[in-house]
């Protein structure tokens, strides 16, 4: 046989290139659909508006429940956009192609989760202090609120992505996704809201933030494998 002109390639690695390209691709896509990025933020503001109306406009009362309200509302807002994390990739077939990339799927899915955090979690964290003012959140806890949310939502994105990967093959996975993911969110919620509460009481917050960091580290280590395994299951459903 003649020497083939199609040589067999050695796998060149190129993990960083692939991760970077995936980051750029997902960021471009989301920034072209700004509505999808803004919706969770509007949802966050709306939910926060509902509480004074339903409970009482009394600033003192609001101040006591503000840390919890802000954290719960932000958590729900972050959850809202999770369902679309893998869905469009699943629908148009690029998820299949992602699975067939020579690079490890776990690393590539972390890139996608990172984009989700960058455009959902981080904006929520930055916006939370503003809503804190509206809930008469005591001074001195604003920085902690933003920081705890920024740390916490990263864990939430990672854990939530497992649920999103498990339900992406299902036609109506949205409600199921919340059912799967919310119980797993509880530790993050406890320490996140706890950090803000501690800041209000004047206690040290470093312990809370350290635990949030530890939760993030654990999620970073374990979640990518679960996400990759779940995507492989969903793609063959």
């Amino acid at each position: 046989m003649d020497a083939p002109s199609v040589p067999l390639l050695e796998h060149q690695g190129g993990l960083m290139i692939a991760v970077k390209a995936t980051l750029v691709r997902d960021l471009t896509l989301l920034l072209r659909r700004r509505g999808e990025v803004l919706n969770p933020l509007v949802f966050f503001a709306l939910v926060i508006t509902l509480f004074p109306i339903a409970i009482s406009p009394d600033p003192e009362l609001l101040a006591t429940i503000a840390p919890g309200l802000l954290w719960v509302a932000a958590l729900l807002a972050a959850l809202l956009s999770l369902d679309s994390l893998f869905r469009s990739d699943y629908d148009d077939g690029s998820l299949e192609q992602l699975l067939l990339a020579p690079q490890p799927l776990a690393a590539l899915s972390v890139a996608k989760v990172a984009v989700h955090w960058l455009l959902a979690g981080l904006p929520l964290a930055l916006m939370a202090p503003l809503l804190g003012i509206m809930l008469a959140l005591p001074a001195g806890s604003y920085a902690v609120l933003a920081l705890s949310l920024a740390l916490g939502t990263a864990s939430l994105s990672l854990i939530g992505a497992i649920g999103a990967a498990l339900t992406v093959g299902l036609a109506r996975g949205g409600v199921l996704l919340s059912l799967l993911v919310l119980p797993l969110y509880i530790p993050v919620l406890i320490f996140g809201a706890g950090a803000v509460q501690a800041a209000i009481l004047g206690d040290g917050v470093s312990a809370h933030l350290a635990i949030l960091g530890a939760l993030l580290a654990a999620s970073l280590m374990l979640a990518p494998w679960a996400i990759a395994a779940s995507l492989r299951i969903s793609i063959n459903g």
């Binding site: 390209a21 995936t22 072209r32 148009d92 077939g93 299949e96 690079q103």
Partner: peptide, 28 residues
């Protein structure tokens, strides 16, 4: 596969750039 794996929000050039990167070639 059955689905083309093309993102409707990206141009053909951008779509191909991603595939190029997955095969280990720097495109950006």
């Amino acid at each position: 596969g059955h689905a083309p794996g093309i993102k409707s929000g990206l141009s053909p050039l951008e779509n191909l750039a991603w595939y190029q990167a997955l095969s280990g070639e720097s495109s950006g």
